[in-house]
Design a protein around this nucleic acid. Structure first.
Lengths: 362, 362
DNA sequence: TATACCCTAG
DNA sequence: CTAGGGTATA
């Protein structure tokens, strides 16, 4: 028996927007910790992982783990019937053959109820590698969206290169080639210095992190050659990655293993959504965050242990960037030869995309 | 070697918006005076001429004339990657096989560079007839846009009729016929009395111009039967106009003749952008100009030596009217049997369209 | 498949 | 009022 109430149906709508193009069907794994979704796209090049913390719900109850096999197209249709600010209650029985959605206007004078058929989906629970990334790039979600959309009009793929100088996105196309360099700025560094840190749990206190300051390119301040650690809350089995023809692929485990809620996850859930990324508080947060910079808050914050350069399909990145509606900020985690992690964290949880690099590039 | 910097990439973007649908490829003729573009549409019914004055650029350097053969589709794509307020620098070597565009955010934390392949384009430099038009109609660009868009939903073509009464746009369609009469108003006359005059050069001092005042239809004030002169800054060879099946056509010269910077052009460039049509100053200019009229500044200003009535394809006019983003004001120059000139003048230069009339109409 | 127009959302 | 997404068309 699952019963979960979201104060804003918009959260779900926005989540689905980005995911539904990647995968058609997916299991919403519900347990006491919240709701998780993990799925690969059909070509096994991209993986999406969504987490909605139980305590992000106005009401949450899940007696025992239930996988809800959802056709995302159907769910999108049903969610379209909700107004953005409707209170939204999900209900499913243990046999999980139907998902009931109830939309209530906050004034209480309107109640809509929908029942959606569920399906059995082979649990392709993926092992998400627990990677020690070499670079973490934090920037505004809007800027990331803009960049990948711009470049996608030129070419198929983008090379992302992180150096002390900044991060460079470069694409080659028939008609033109282009590259965008985002420099690290003090404003961005201050803005994002602690972004995502309290999300991560144990290590990654600021001393371990390599701070690359823009102005003294040759002697970055706090270089301690530890890796930029991340992803403690995720199982790290099946680290090997099968290489496809052109792009590496994720390999499905096809086992019914629940992603258990780790200690760090629990810690994360205690965080009082302080990271300025709640959808409601968006404008205000953005404004507050841009104390020194105006309009969009340019510049990036970079933490890195070594120079990385990888090439990715822009089609996927454009898709990922749709999640900008969920958070003002996006983080890119990179390491040569391994999948890129694109992470949007919002008050209620996160959505993370993993994208295998194109091979034979850098 | 060309190097030219625009303070706002938006200028180029807007220029391209209107031109790219008319022609696919065109030469940007760069010389010390600035950048010129001249091209016919595929059917040779319309001709577009763009001028960007050298001193309208924040920085301009062109050692010797270079024709940049540009695929406008590609350039549009590349320009899409610029934010409207980006500083935009164009660079090309003398061999002109690549055009480099650099976009810099004004904050400086974002630099994008694009290289676009250039191509050799047969220089179809057109002889633009130096026409003594019989009527000059000055109106707000927005009103013109509105009119041609309205009428284009009714029919294929519009008859434009200029009389002392005003200017009438009339279209016949299957379902309905409609016509719009814009009367000359004192407000419009005052507003536009000197519009374009300092752009034009030698003659056209106000005494030579036929002022048609609306209120005393039967005895217009200063009728001196000189022609309304125009287009001194343009070569006037190949005046003959070949007539096509339905519409007259422009005839290409197919010679590599540079449009040289005439004396009147040079005078024009000294003009301190006083004509209230800089893209930046748009809202303010419009407001200042609307002292007596509200919302868009209705009414037209008409100068004419004789009644004209011509019919044009609305499709083209709708296309031309996209240039309204460049200037608040548009001028129509008409003379029976010869192409209409639709002219938008903005701080940086102008864009002019010539459209052959439909034959067998009036 | 790419482009243009329309519509909706911010 | 502008921009982005979707749809429809070429």
């Amino acid at each position: 028996m699952l019963e979960a109430t979201l104060n804003e149906a918009a959260t779900l709508k926005r989540l689905l927007d980005a995911v539904k193009e990647l995968v058609q069907d997916a299991n919403f794994e519900c347990n006491e910790g919240g709701i998780n979704l993990q799925a690969m796209d059909n070509s096994h090049v991209a993986l999406v992982a969504v987490k909605l913390h139980a305590d992000g719900f106005a009401l949450y109850r899940c007696d025992r783990p239930i996988p809800l096999g959802v056709n995302l197209g159907s769910l999108t249709k049903v969610l379209k019937c909700a107004k953005d600010d409707d209170k939204c209650t999900l209900k499913a029985n243990d046999d999980a053959d139907v998902l009931s959605l109830k939309y209530e206007a906050h004034r209480g004078d309107r109640i809509a109820e929908y029942d959606m058929k569920l399906m059995d989906i082979d649990a392709d629970t993926l092992g998400i590698p627990d990677t020690d990334y070499d670079a973490r790039v934090t920037m505004t979600a809007a800027e990331f969206t803009r960049i990948v959309r711009d470049l996608s009009s030129l070419g198929e793929s983008v090379r992302i290169e992180v150096s002390k100088e900044g991060v460079r996105f470069a694409s080659d196309g028939e008609a033109a080639q282009g590259n965008i360099l985002l420099k690290q700025t003090d404003a961005a560094r201050e803005r994002y210095e602690n972004y995502g840190k309290d999300d991560e749990g144990d290590d990654d206190d600021d001393d371990d992190v390599v701070e690359v300051k823009q102005e003294d390119d040759e002697k970055p301040k706090k270089v301690k050659k530890e890796k930029v650690k991340k992803e403690e809350g995720v199982e790290d089995e099946d680290e090997e990655m099968a290489s496809g023809d052109d792009e590496a692929e994720f390999k499905a485990k096809s086992e019914d293993e629940e992603e258990e809620v780790s200690e760090s996850e629990k810690k994360k859930r205690k965080r009082p959504a302080a990271s300025s990324s709640n959808s409601k508080a968006k404008k205000k947060a953005k404004k507050a965050v841009d104390d020194s910079a105006e309009g969009g808050g340019g510049g990036v914050h970079i933490e890195m242990t070594q120079h990385v350069s990888l090439t990715f399909s822009l089609k996927y990145l454009v898709n990922f960037s749709k999640s900008a509606s969920l958070s003002d900020t996006v983080q890119l985690m990179l390491k040569n030869e391994v999948p890129l992690l694109v992470s949007y964290t919002f008050g209620q949880g996160y959505i993370r995309y993993y994208l295998a690099p194109k091979i034979g590039d850098d």
